[in-house]
């Protein structure tokens, strides 16, 4: 079952074509990555899902039927450009934003208290945004995004501005949301930041979908069938044809799996009395896959 489905969406701004026949579906309860470089059309896609703008062509389905205005209350949105009122205390803001999403005042207040405790923000309850560190502001904004327990959580570049400790807390919370049954849409131009989290993804480049599928499928489909061996000892004769690089970890060599299997290569190495530090199959990251695709499409 798909929570959201975009079908053949077209959208132009004046002469610029922002989306050119984009289609993708977000399975319910999954973490979904919307990837692509700046200007590819990610924000436009998100705005269409948020019903901030309407597509010129194509349709958006929510739980299998055309999306309706009131579905907006089931969506939580953390935009890339974070923003809160500077001169309003943070608890009031979070409660206000929750109310705009349909919560009653008492319910919003209750949940806000719980979240503030969870993120250790209680003593900041009455402070203004200007008094908070950037990391705390991010937390407040995150709370405002999910206070109404949306079915769909849209996070645009969620990790930018978080230090490693807080990024880890955020990651945990995202996984919690997933466990609770929420669907999460991640948008990022930094592919590697989300690849470990995403169940499936779509990659947009120049207003078109260039790649889609589950993260595992995509990486398997793009693996180069090579292994990387790190070892110590004299380079044996049979390695003559391969380039051996000397690194801090030891000597590094890339061997093609077309000739021998991993086991056979290892056997050879052991016979040559090499000390083996590591051996792994080379599976490209999303970044490399993306660059590969862009280069191929440019040819």
């Amino acid at each position: 079952m798909n929570l959201i489905e975009l079908r053949n969406i077209h959208k132009s701004f004046e002469a610029h074509k922002a989306l050119n026949g984009v289609s993708f579906s977000i399975p319910k309860g999954s973490i979904f990555g919307l990837l692509g470089p700046n200007g590819a059309g990610k924000t436009t896609s998100i705005r269409i899902i948020n019903q901030i703008i309407a597509p010129d062509e194509g349709e958006v389905l929510f739980e299998g039927r055309p999306i309706r205005r009131e579905d907006i209350q089931k969506v939580g949105y953390l935009p890339e450009e974070r923003g809160l009122y500077k001169k309003m205390n943070i608890a009031d803001q979070v409660i206000y934003l929750g109310q705009l999403k349909g919560l009653s005042k008492s319910e919003a207040t209750h949940r806000c208290k719980q979240w503030f405790e969870r993120f250790d923000l209680q003593k900041w309850w009455n402070k203004n945004v200007a008094d908070l560190s950037k990391g705390m502001q991010q937390k407040v904004q995150f709370i405002a995004t999910i206070l109404h327990e949306p079915d769909l959580v849209i996070l645009d570049e969620p990790f930018s501005g978080f230090d490693p400790v807080n990024a880890e807390i955020l990651k945990e919370e995202i996984l919690n949301l997933k466990q609770r049954g929420a669907t999460i849409l991640f948008s990022s131009h930094r592919m590697e930041s989300v690849e470990t989290l995403c169940d499936s993804l779509v990659m947009i480049h120049q207003s078109k979908v260039v790649l889609s599928g589950t993260t595992r499928e995509i990486r398997q489909a793009h693996k180069s069938s090579e292994i990387e061996l790190v070892f110590e000892g004299n380079t044996p004769d049979w390695m003559q044809g391969f380039s051996v690089a000397q690194t801090e970890d030891g000597n590094k060599v890339v061997l093609p799996m077309a000739e021998h299997s991993v086991n056979e290569w290892l056997q050879k190495a052991l016979q040559s009395q090499l000390t083996i530090h590591s051996c792994r199959e080379l599976i490209p990251g999303l970044n490399e896959i993306f660059i590969q695709i862009v280069q191929n499409s440019a040819l």
Binding site: I72, Y77, P79, G83, L97
Partner: peptide
Amino acid sequence: RIMEVLISS
């Protein structure tokens, strides 16, 4: 930049 959050609500 709170506008974007508001008009999505």
